[in-house]
């Protein structure tokens, strides 16, 4: 960890003009600073800023302050089940007590080469190469990859939020702007170091989940090598609106397989209007991994993804 200067302002203005790297729960930042992956000369502790609160606004949209802790959001009664589940299946209770949801959306990939400064990595050190493509890539992405980077986005929360068309409110001294979370993340392309659309001097202020009453019937399935305290091999967020045995509407997104949270619009389309049964789920899920580009050790994800979709649909349809 390189020496740095630490400040802890209490007003947004001070924080936004500081030009320093924001520290919320620190569970990504402190970790990566110890590993020398991140070397900010100045760090601003943003925890005293007024970016808190979990509430449903008059329009029925759910608004969550970026500094709310993962544990608090998961436990909140007005939060959709798919969000709670995604959070409760993330990390550990200790980490969820520390980590903010703004930080969660900004967390960095868990690619082992990214985390190891002795190794090249295009995302950390543009142009240095990507050892994952030929190396240990069992955990890596099959969708949205490029020749420059194949790392997954590791947030479970983001997958649930993308399924629900969430937006994030960004604050800066220039005022605010609102971005769909799905558009916020960038595919790696030739510039994997540019992960998102946050501009210098901006912070995530709030997360807004548009009202979706039927998302009361939603869930998150996370498949992993051990039962807990691990990132996903594959995960699926699903909200399902079944009327008279038919799929009236559905939202599905996947994690662990894409370089960004991966919305499965083709599967949604195939399901809409069809019967809500296992056979239909299985048929619709077949297109889930379309366009996948498997690597030497992660080809199984193309088979696992449709199966995880089916499992999630079955679990949510059984209630």
């Amino acid at each position: 960890m390189r020496a740095f200067e630490l400040t802890a302002p209490t007003t947004l203005d001070e924080a936004l003009t500081s030009g320093a790297t924001a520290l919320a729960g620190g569970t990504t930042l402190v970790d990566l600073m110890k590993l020398d992956v991140l070397t900010p000369p100045r760090v601003v502790d943003i925890n005293a800023l007024p970016l808190r609160g979990i509430e449903v606004d008059p329009a029925g949209d759910l608004r969550i302050g970026a500094l709310e802790r993962m544990s608090a959001v998961a436990a909140h009664p007005q939060v959709y089940p798919v969000i709670s589940r995604a959070l409760l299946l993330s990390a550990s209770q200790q980490l969820r007590n520390m980590a903010s949801i703004g930080g969660n959306l900004m967390q960095r990939t868990r690619c082992g080469y990214f985390r190891d400064v002795a190794m090249p990595c295009n995302r950390r050190d543009p142009g240095s190469g990507c050892p994952a493509i030929e190396g240990a890539n069992r955990m890596h992405a099959v969708l949205g990859t490029s020749d420059a980077c194949v790392a997954t986005h590791a947030s479970d929360l983001a997958v649930a939020l993308v399924a629900l068309d969430a937006r994030i409110e960004l604050v800066s001294t220039q005022g605010g702007r609102s971005v769909a979370l799905a558009d916020f993340y960038r595919l790696p392309g030739d510039t994997p170091e540019r992960e998102h659309d946050l501009r210098p001097g901006e912070l995530i202020g709030e997360i807004v989940v548009p009202r979706l009453d039927w998302a009361a019937r939603s869930t998150y399935v996370k498949v992993r090598d051990r039962q807990s305290y691990e990132f996903a091999l594959c995960s699926v967020a699903v909200a399902l609106d079944v009327r008279d045995g038919r799929v009236a509407d559905v939202r599905i997104a996947a994690g662990g397989v894409g370089t960004v949270p991966w919305r499965l619009t083709a599967v949604e389309a195939a399901l809409r209007g069809g019967p809500a049964d296992e056979a239909a789920f299985e048929a619709a899920a077949q297109v889930a991994a379309d366009g996948a580009r498997p690597l030497s050790h992660n080809g199984y994800k193309t088979a696992l993804l449709p199966r995880t979709v089916v499992r999630a649909l079955l679990e949510v349809s059984r209630g």
Partner: peptide, 13 residues
């Protein structure tokens, strides 16, 4: 009153 990981917490915060 809540469990956290002391190794990822900066003492100064």
């Amino acid at each position: 009153g809540r469990p956290v990981l002391a190794c990822l917490t900066l003492a100064a915060t």
